[in-house]
Write a protein that binds this DNA or RNA. Structure first.
Lengths: 142, 142
DNA sequence: ATGTATGCAAAACATTTGCACCTGG
DNA sequence: CCAGGTGCAAATGTTTTGCATACAT
C-alpha cells in the first residue's frame, strides 16, 4: 500500500497526494509536467488545484519520492523516484524521454570534479537528439 | 575588429549589439545572466533596455556567437562561443562555473545514444558540487 | 529612404504564496 | 478539535512581444 510512503515521509495521507502519486505510478510516460498531472486529475473528475499539484510535487521531491528534471523546455518534469540513478535522452521531435545509466561516465565525472577541486553532490546529464521511433513526427528530408 | 562577427552573422552593427558583445568578451565571469549584462550596461551609462538585451542575446545564440545554458537556477546564463565545446561544473555555494571537456564522456554519449536508436544533436552535462575556493562562502561544518 | 532595431510597457508563462476554508487523525 | 492541507486568486520572476520611434546602410 503506497500510503505508507506518504506516512514515512511525514505527510498526511490526503486525497490530492494519493491521486498524484497514483498518476505518477500508473502513467506510461514516466516523466510528467505539473500541468500534465493537473490535466489528468481534471480528466478523472478530481477537483484539485494546480497550485496544490505544485505544492505536493515539491513536497514529494523534498521527501525523495519524486525527482524534478529541467529538460530544455521551460517546464520542469517530474518522475517517480524508483531507486536507480539515471540520466536522460530526449527526442527533439517527439519529446520522448529515455533513461540510461553509464558507469564509465559516472566515474569520469567524479574524477573530473576532483581534478577541479570540487566534491560532486549532484549532476544533470541530458542528451538531445532524434529518435528512430515509428511514431516520431520527424519525417525524412522535410 | 569584432564588428565583423556581427556583419558575418547578418546583423546590423548597432550600439547595443556591440556593447553586449564587448561585455561578454571582457567579463572575467564567462557566464552571465541577461540581467547581469543589463546591469553592466546601466553602470556604463548606456541606455539599453532589458528587452533588447534578451533580443540581442537570442539573436547571438541563433547566429552561433553565444550559447545559452540552463543551470539549475531560474535564470539562463549566456557565454561567448569561443569554439571548443565543453561542459560545466557549478559550485552550489558560490555559484562559480568551471568548464571541462572529457573525450571519454563524449564518446560514451555517442555510443549510448546509438544503442538507444538516437542520433545525438546536442547534450547538456552539468555537475553540481562544492568547490574548494578560498572565497567560497561555504563554511566547514555550518 | 527604408527596413531593421530599440525602448518602453504590457503580455505571457511557469511557479509560488497569502489567506480563508476544509479535512485527516 | 486543531495542525496541517487545500482552492482560489493574486503575486512573483523571467523572458517575450506589440508598437511607435530611432537608427544604420
Amino acid at each position: 500500500m503506497e500510503t505508507s510512503n506518504l506516512k514515512k515521509a511525514g505527510l498526511k495521507v490526503t486525497l490530492p497526494r494519493m491521486k498524484i502519486l497514483e498518476i505518477l505510478e500508473q502513467s506510461e510516460t514516466r516523466h510528467l509536467t505539473a500541468e500534465a498531472i493537473y490535466r489528468e486529475l481534471l480528466d478523472s473528475g478530481e477537483e484539485i488545484g494546480l497550485a496544490t499539484v505544485y505544492r505536493v510535487l515539491t513536497q514529494f521531491e523534498a521527501a525523495g519520492l519524486v525527482c524534478r528534471l529541467h529538460l530544455e523546455g521551460n517546464q520542469a518534469v517530474f518522475e517517480l523516484e524508483r531507486g536507480g540513478h539515471h540520466d536522460h535522452i530526449v527526442c527533439n521531435q517527439c519529446g520522448r524521454v529515455e533513461e540510461f545509466y553509464d558507469e564509465t561516465i559516472e566515474q569520469r565525472q567524479q574524477r573530473i570534479a576532483a581534478d577541479h577541486g570540487f566534491s560532486i553532490r549532484d549532476h544533470a546529464l541530458v542528451l538531445y537528439g532524434d529518435c528512430s521511433d515509428e511514431s516520431c513526427p520527424r519525417r525524412p528530408a522535410s
